[in-house]
Design a protein around this nucleic acid. Sequence first.
DNA 1: GCCGTTTTCGGCCCGACTGTTTTCAGTCG
Length: 544
Amino acid sequence: MQMKITASQLSNLLEEIKTLMELNGENPFKSRAFGNAADKIRELGDSEDWETRTRTGKLTELPGIGKGIAEVITDFVQNGQSKVQAELERALPEGLLELSRVPGLGPKKARSVIETLGIKTLGELEYACAENRLATMKGFGEKSQAKILEGVRFLRAGEGLQPLPVAEADGLLLETALKKLAGSKKRVELAGALRMRREVIDSIDFVIEKGAVEAADWKSKLDELSSQRQTQVPVRLHEVAAKNFESEWLKQSSSPEHWTELGATTGASEQAIYESAGYAWVPAESREWASDLALFKKSKPIELVQTSDIHGAFHFHTVASDGALTLEEVIQEAISRNWKFIGVSDHSQSAFYAQGLKSDALKKQRDELEKLRKKYPQIRIFWGIESDILGDGGLDYDESTLGDFDFVIASIHSRFQMDREAMTERLIRAVENPATTMLGHLTGRILLGRKGYDIDFDRVFEACAKHGVSIELNSHPSRLDVDWRHGEKLRKLGIPISLNPDAHERDGFNDIRYGVDMARKACLPKSQIINSWNVEEIEKWLKK
DNA sequence: GCCGTTTTCGGCCCGACTGTTTTCAGTCG
């Protein structure tokens, strides 16, 4: 069966080849070339017809794609697999791919662990750490062993777990298949963690009407779909009689705490069940804490933000630092979404790894921005910077440079290893800086990849409230940081929350929907979400 | 591997940190 070739298939392939080359110790510039080509393809997306471009030999017209990479792509498009990728995989020592995922273990050290200790799996590595065998190896010691052990435990906890967007794609695939099997007479609905928009998904749940599908049919359908699925997240079907469908659907789309707190169990619809208990309908994503239910009292339910309330957003990177779009392209994309405002913020000078902007680059961007403001009067363009928070809590430019921006996002990008007290002080100092508008990705966590650093949230939140500093809800699905679980504190302190895509490419604009999901999970009122404010309100707030 | 040119080679982003070492390799962002 011929499947349409998508940009994400191709960029994933090239990205994987890049990783395999790194692990194989290839020339770093060569592997980077594959990474660059992957970025380019992702950036162009499916506006390109990749099959036609491949067939007609026009791949090399794209910058970053030369003869070599065009051959790899052609091979993949024609044969559905890549010889280069297969060869690289063959050349790789067993276990290297898995072990190199551990924070602190790069290609060199992972290889050394495999060769010296004969370790091939995370489980073996964990055991070797417990046995103190790593610490005795050349180039390793007590501390690196402890760090690696922590990394292994963190990764193992993530097995069978997937980030929301990845599991969501599987969920849609399965939902379509299930509904087709069930036909129009029997109901099938998505429930569980996916319907609740949890940031990490541990199972894909459906509530189905009794007799909707035969177990054997579903099993063979699942087998058939397994090659198209991107995850091994377990799938669960909850079968229920038609008369109890709504109540079961509600139960399977709520936390146990929420379900218990609600108390009511029967009704013709979810809405009716909530109403009979004195509440307005609660969206599934907001059914987490028992105490949040009170926010939905029928007399005066909380108004949550929705995607249609989003008039704009802050935190976009451009080609001036590590983004893929030019300043003008970012603005045009915002306009195409009917946004009323956009806040661009490239990296600051200390962010070498991301080509942070030095003073001449700042001036250049500012001049360009002035021209674009005239050219696109239909949108308010805020000029900002994502300033690194330095080790001592200071920001990255002098006071007068910082004063030129409309807004400043203060973020930590280095020195993650500080203890709780030092990190808390560092953040508070950044909050106290009069130039700071908002705190970026508060804990630096990478979901399923890296724990955030430990801070005293209460103290940081209180400092934000005191100094009128907003907190970013970084909407990249691997961050979703600040965590929605802090919703009650943020609500009580009334700290303005900014749903920031932190976009480095066109696709990143879409991530804001995950920010909306998390804001709804946090039960933050719409009025607290900066993106829903009109331009005058934002300008007034920024002036303060 | 890609690119660009003063074109067929040489450069491609690089600084900080960590833990190890006893002057630096490896990892990270």
